[in-house]
């Protein structure tokens, strides 16, 4: 898929663990893993908002479009 999720990069920058982020934003680690691995088909605005709030970043820091 041409949309790449850079969540692990942001997590490394903020020195935060996936489990921690999952707890803050209120989703399961399994769902966060789906998002991180790029298997997710869609992201809810509420989830994106929570991630941006927790990581103090913009949606563009997490989502990136790379032409195939």
């Amino acid at each position: 898929m041409p949309i790449v999720i850079n969540l692990d990069v942001m997590l490394a920058k903020r020195k935060m663990r996936s489990k921690e982020l999952a707890e803050i934003i209120g989703i399961t680690t399994a769902n966060l893993s789906i998002l991180k691995s790029g298997k997710a088909k869609a992201v809810r605005f509420s989830t994106l908002e929570a991630i941006c709030k927790a990581l103090e970043c913009q949606p563009a820091d997490i989502l990136e479009y790379i032409e195939e």
Binding site: A40, K41, V43, T47
Partner: peptide, 8 residues
């Protein structure tokens, strides 16, 4: 259903 399951 698959798409719904993969919506985070």
């Amino acid at each position: 259903k698959e798409e719904n399951d993969l919506t985070v």
